[in-house]
Design a binder for these strands. Structure first.
Lengths: 156, 156
DNA sequence: TATTGTTATACTCTATAACTATA
DNA sequence: TATAGTTATAGAGTATAACAATA
């Protein structure tokens, strides 16, 4: 079989891997409100410093309205809570509850196994390499699509 | 600034990079029917051997109904054409027209520049490495999400 | 009877804009 | 006047199911 032209495409490979990851993650995160995206919100909320919803939305590549729905669901489940920011009472600071912290710990562990499963076709060394390269790229993109640059500017 | 928990997440990094790529690609592919996905269909159609729509849909991670719409648009623009498969007259073989081949050549070149732009934060060596790792992973995923395994089985 | 591709429908998801409250 | 977040609505995108042609 001749290699189809599309297989030399970075976008194609990225899409296949991304979809494969999301599918695998959705299975593990089926009972977590918001699925993979809910998990990312929860993960962000577990960090010591609280984040405004807008900063979070930008970092996770979400619309601010979607962020509202996601947090609504997580809050209803008692995993996170919104508090008004003393410094700017328009903004809400998001933080994980005790329950949320525990839930995050379990879920993070399960997700680590999912990641290993998704990366299984690669050798151990290659897996680490791919992780590093993707993280490096994700945290250094300098165009508008870069969440982290904005995060650094806006402060979190 | 402390690193948020989510930044150590493979899914987060994949998402940021994937969205960054899609956004950049959409700019270049704005006038191509179907955008990035239309491009992948066109790219697949330029390969010598024609593909059935179903095989194609699976490889590109699309629903078969979406594939119908995508090809409709590309065919209306005169870039690809459907012909009945002599071996199975239920199936249609997709191939690029002369115009489609030319259009693909231009677009592929533009897209190569987009890829380099997206990967710009990495060193040249790292860029090649990331491409190889992603391609390797994309062509070796063995669960149901793997388009290529199926392609090999079904034949293309 | 099963499968390819098409069509029509329904549903989900997302973005747009309008609104409240703060600044 | 501008911004954070919310809400309601409209729109795009997606999947579901029914259908025709062929195996």
């Amino acid at each position: 079989m001749t290699t189809p032209a599309v297989e030399s495409d970075l976008g194609w490979a990225l899409g296949v891997v991304f979809r494969g990851y999301v599918r695998a993650a959705e299975e593990v995160l089926a009972d977590l409100p918001g699925g993979p995206r809910g998990y990312q919100v929860l993960a962000s909320a577990t960090t010591g410093e609280s984040c405004s919803q807008q900063v979070l939305a930008h970092r996770l590549g979400l619309d601010k309205t979607v962020m509202t729905y996601l947090i609504d669901d997580l809050e209803r489940s008692g995993l996170v809570e919104r508090r008004p920011d003393p410094a700017d009472r328009r903004a809400r600071l998001l933080s994980a509850t005790e329950t949320g912290l525990a839930r995050f710990a379990e879920t993070a562990e399960a997700l680590r196994r999912v990641e290993e499963h998704v990366l299984a076709p690669l050798a151990a060394q290659e897996r680490d390499l791919l992780r590093d390269l993707l993280r490096k790229l994700a945290t250094r993109q300098d165009d508008g699509s870069n969440p982290c640059a904005a995060v650094d500017e806006i402060q979190c």
